[in-house]
Amino acid sequence: MTTIAVIPGDGIGPEVVEQAMVVLDRLGIGLKFDVLDHVNATSYLRDGSTLETADMDRVRSGAGILLGAIGDPRVRSVDYAREILLRLRFELDLYVNYRPARLLHDRLSPLRDPARRAIDCVLVRENTEGLYVDVGGTVREGTDHETAIDAEVSTYFGVSRVIGFALRAARHGVCMVDKANAVRNSGELWQRCWRDLGEAHPELVKTHLYVDVAAMRLVEDPASFEVIVTNNSYGDILSDLAAQVAGGLGAAASANINPESGAGLYEPVHGSAPDIAGTGTANPFGAILSGAMLLDQLGRTDEANAVRGAVDRAVAARRCTVDLGGQLGTADAGRAVVSEL
């Protein structure tokens, strides 16, 4: 048996991750789910617990992590989410955030021009550095002279390994995105790593865009991208934009991985969506497709492709939730994928 650690989390997380487990179990490939259903906002509000040492031991002993969502409007402190998500990313060194954006059906694209709708690209985002490492502080807090500083951290080691991954993952071309014309120091580091590593891949088309131009191009001609590599904050923004161009966040999947160790955290992009939690209307396809990415990491490529194909057929037949043009609830949409398998 292969054990998968599951953190259902908050909001719609338990609802969508349940359907992902149903689909993965249906494949009959010997997966066992270790569900950490106590890691959530309710536990945090009750006793301040987040991800304890024993929980990390269970996570490390598994072959991967399937995460529903973290976030609850009752929790005002940012420490709750950071102590779960960032602890997993940093302690497991999940330095690649891998977010594919693929149009599931032509009707889902918000773009008018049919010739430009067929987005099928991957955002490779550096996941352990940048603005999210919490370097900085506040002085004179609560006064008219309050000053807040957040420092962006980029290292040659961190930048070079994520660019190297993106170059190895591409078949045709990679676009590196930065803002070197305004953010000089980290921009120059990204540019140097890009030049140094790109020389080893003459077979690839290598392009560069500033982040504002990249955002414009993702809307203007999203089909022109294959792989985009960028830093933590730019990747966070661009990947959500790419997901919307591909038809919406509901079906957007992601992986946080360490390619060398094989560690991986797989989660839908949409978040906990507390406004629809408990209504049975959440789209489970993002969680199911995240499960397919987990299968890829386990070397189960045929099964992963079978899951993706089943989702495609369910969407084409409108056997899906309202956001994708169907009328099904969460559980029925999950059953539709199972029946397509």
Rank of each mutant, 00 (worst) to 15 (best):
9 G>F: 14
9 G>Y: 15
22 V>R: 15
36 L>S: 10
37 D>W: 02
37 D>C: 07
38 H>N: 08
38 H>E: 02
40 N>P: 12
42 T>P: 01
48 G>C: 03
67 L>R: 14
77 S>A: 11
77 S>W: 08
79 D>Y: 02
81 A>Q: 13
83 E>S: 15
83 E>D: 12
85 L>R: 08
86 L>K: 05
86 L>C: 03
93 D>P: 01
95 Y>I: 05
96 V>A: 04
99 R>H: 04
101 A>P: 01
105 H>D: 12
113 D>S: 04
115 A>Q: 07
122 V>H: 03
135 V>G: 07
145 H>P: 01
147 T>F: 03
152 E>P: 00
153 V>H: 03
153 V>Q: 05
159 V>A: 00
160 S>M: 02
160 S>Q: 05
161 R>Y: 01
166 A>V: 07
186 S>V: 06
188 E>K: 14
197 L>D: 14
198 G>I: 11
203 E>C: 08
203 E>F: 04
207 T>K: 10
210 Y>T: 11
217 R>P: 00
219 V>R: 04
224 S>D: 09
227 V>H: 04
228 I>M: 08
230 T>G: 00
237 I>G: 00
238 L>N: 03
247 G>E: 03
248 G>Q: 09
250 G>L: 08
275 D>S: 11
277 A>T: 05
283 N>S: 03
283 N>I: 10
284 P>D: 08
284 P>F: 01
289 L>T: 13
305 N>F: 10
306 A>Q: 14
315 V>P: 00
324 L>H: 03
331 A>I: 08
331 A>L: 12
336 A>E: 11
337 V>F: 04
338 V>I: 14
340 E>L: 06
